[in-house]
């Protein structure tokens, strides 16, 4: 199950997000890391140090492209020039799959630079799936769509978030980047059982899993990516890999970034769940 058509039949293990504060450590110490995830917008540029760093990383590591600006759920048509530049980067990195979020964030060419939640309607599912198919066909690489954390819900929604996710990926025939931290954050903000979500996701479409830390406030939880992964999220991760198998897993740590070693050690904590899963499968 882990190697499937949505992650290009790869068997990636545990990776971490490639972040600027760690560049020097990675290039000089060359730590053993199974793969890195890059935020592809940071490398859709003309030249300079970021692309040089990327090329150096590519000489030694496997890289997967993850985005924050494709806005599959925005009502506007995809920007072909943007996709052309993205495709050029896809060729450069050889990424086996590309992922971005199940959200919207731009209107008529104006960008909020946020991952805004979708209204869970059939119309939105249809538009989003059309866009996903278009992007996948243009880039000629499998696409995985990631569930976002959210703090608001719309009156117009006609289904639950997980039903919407399923509707979109079935219509688009695409993969899922299952973010278990986002499921936990949203479950607390919207009062649902996160296990219901995990158990409802089509396991055979899970191309990759995200884990991350979050921050609790008095009345809501914010997806801050500035902490170690918390226990309830590890429990969801455990359940996710029981269902989906040994899936490529990535730790996101984007703010108050500690040393490379600390981030990597935190990511490798996923190993114990993967080992447990192997034992359970063996038994």
């Amino acid at each position: 199950m882990p190697a499937n058509r949505f992650n290009n039949f790869t068997n990636y293990g545990i990776g971490i997000g490639l972040r600027a504060p760690h560049y020097d450590h990675i290039l000089t110490r060359k730590p053993v890391v199974d793969w890195f995830e890059i935020i592809f917008e940071n490398f859709m540029i003309g030249g300079g140090r970021p692309l040089r760093i990327l090329d150096q990383i590519l000489e030694q590591y496997r890289v997967v492209q993850h985005g924050v600006s494709m806005y599959f759920g925005s009502a506007n048509r995809p920007d072909r020039e943007h996709l052309r530049r993205l495709k050029s980067l896809v060729k450069r990195t050889g990424t086996p799959w590309v992922s971005d979020h199940l959200c919207w964030g731009s209107v008529d060419g104006t960008y909020t630079h946020d991952l805004l939640p979708m209204p869970y309607t059939f119309e939105a599912a249809k538009i989003t799936a059309q866009k996903l198919r278009y992007v996948r066909d243009f880039l000629e690489v499998p696409i995985a769509v990631e569930n976002v954390s959210s703090y608001a819900e719309y009156h117009v929604s006609e289904m639950t978030e997980w039903e919407f996710l399923n509707e979109v990926v079935e219509r688009a025939d695409c993969g899922i980047l299952l973010d278990v931290n986002n499921i936990y954050v949203s479950s607390q903000n919207h009062n649902f059982n996160p296990l219901t979500y995990i158990n409802s996701v089509p396991a055979d479409r899970v191309a990759q899993i995200h884990i991350a830390g979050h921050s609790k406030f008095e009345k809501f939880i914010l997806d801050t990516h500035d902490h170690p992964v918390l226990d309830p999220v590890w429990k969801l991760y455990d359940r996710a890999i029981q269902r989906a198998g040994h899936t490529a897993t990535l730790l996101e740590w984007d703010d108050r970034i500690p040393s490379f070693q600390e981030v990597h050690d935190e990511a490798l904590r996923a190993d114990r769940f993967l080992a447990d899963t192997q034992l359970k499968v063996a038994v």
Partner: peptide
């Protein structure tokens, strides 16, 4: 309300 109109209003 259409998706486009909802997104314009929220944005």
């Amino acid at each position: 309300m259409s998706l486009a109109n909802l997104q314009k209003a929220v944005a």
